[in-house]
């Protein structure tokens, strides 16, 4: 019932296409974006909620990366 009336709106078919294009561009940009991020920055952000003292340890990094966590587990 709804769709019948919606389909009468002029140019309605272009809506999903616009959406798909906008989303695809945004998503692709975001992927490029996150992979160009600095690793040190990522490590700092990952550690932000944990109780680390960034001032004594400028990098502020408790766990450098996932492999370090793995090492810690193996210890």
């Amino acid at each position: 019932m709804l769709s019948e009336h919606i389909s009468r709106i002029e140019g309605i078919a272009v809506y999903p296409i616009i959406s798909l294009i906008v989303f695809s561009i945004l998503f692709a940009a975001a992927i490029v974006w996150v992979f160009r991020l600095d690793k040190k920055y990522l490590a700092r952000m990952e550690n932000l909620p944990l109780d680390t003292n960034f001032d004594n340890n400028p990098e502020g990094i408790k766990f450098q990366n996932n492999s370090e966590i793995k090492n810690e587990i193996e210890k």
């Binding site: 998503f27 975001a30 974006w33 996150v34 991020l37 990522l42 952000m45 909620p49 944990l50 996932n66």
Partner: peptide, 21 residues
Amino acid sequence: LPKAANRPVYSYRLSILHFWA
């Protein structure tokens, strides 16, 4: 969750993508 597990979030990159998508 990172606080309770005392672990940083698994992937910060994924969290950025997660948010915007």
